[in-house]
């Protein structure tokens, strides 16, 4: 464990290729914080040291730290004993996320995600067959209403689609998957890693297909919606476990 953590840590601070920018620094540090390679309250190396280790300019490092501060992942204190400190997401959430990430095995993740895509895709297809105008309004309302973290919004959206599919079993599966996979699959970390990601736009497209009664399209869009999230998670995982 100790050596793998040490080698994983050296990956975190490995030199970047010359084309990388602040964004890459942000991503690598964000990943490290989420995956627990950098722990809460841990002090980061100085800007000069970070710049040297990443092989980027101090300006780039500073830019990255600003972004990390905005995401509340880093806190900068001034004066004596000052510097940049890791602020892991809230302790409880962080602990559970970390312990689950440590148990993550790619074959299991793939299998769980395949099962989930089958459930959510089938729910979307049936919803397209069985929805009336009021049901579409309910789905849209849920998608617009739910505040808070993305995984909560995803849970509410797909649960409502399963309810509109008139399937208690698929709804129960949605509830189960939301607990098992949701916080991981829709972790904010995946979104910060991809600025083009817009789950609401994906939901709107699925809802439109359901409203149009196009079950095949609704199913395909839902499967893609989940597959894309899984791909992001797997890519992140692979980046971090690279020797």
């Amino acid at each position: 464990m100790g050596t793998s953590r040490a080698s994983a840590r050296s990956v975190v601070f490995a030199p970047l290729d010359p084309h990388s920018r602040a964004e890459t620094v942000v991503r690598r540090l964000t990943d490290a914080i989420t995956f627990g390679l950098l722990t809460d309250a841990e002090q980061l190396p100085s800007e000069t040291d970070l710049a040297a280790q990443f092989g980027v300019s101090r300006v780039t490092v500073r830019e990255a730290l600003v972004a990390l501060r905005q995401q509340n992942l880093v806190e900068t204190r001034r004066g004596r004993g000052g510097g940049s400190f890791v602020r892991a997401p809230t302790a409880a959430a962080d602990r559970s996320l970390r312990s689950r990430l440590s148990e993550l095995s790619l074959p299991n993740l793939r299998d769980t995600a395949d099962h989930y895509a089958a459930v959510a895709g089938a729910a979307a297809r049936l919803a397209a067959q069985r929805a009336d105008a009021d049901d579409i309004l309910r789905i849209e309302e849920v998608d617009a209403d739910v505040a808070g973290p993305l995984h909560r919004m995803e849970r509410a959206y797909h649960l409502e689609v399963a309810a509109v599919a008139q399937s208690a079993r698929l709804a129960r599966e949605e509830i189960r998957f939301a607990g098992e996979l949701g916080t991981l699959l829709w972790s904010p970390i995946l979104q910060t890693a991809d600025s083009t990601y817009d789950p609401h736009a994906e939901h709107r497209a699925i809802t439109a297909a359901i409203a149009a009664g196009d079950g095949d399209l609704a199913r395909r869009l839902t499967e893609e919606h989940i597959e894309t999230a899984v791909e992001r998670l797997v890519t992140l995982h692979l980046t971090l476990v690279e020797p």
């Binding site: 649960l159 399963a162 599919a165 008139q166 208690a168 709804a171 129960r172 509830i175």
Partner: peptide
């Protein structure tokens, strides 16, 4: 209803 009662019994 008939509706999927996901609040209470998780039944139709």
């Amino acid at each position: 209803g008939p509706y999927v009662d996901y609040v209470c019994a998780e039944q139709y």
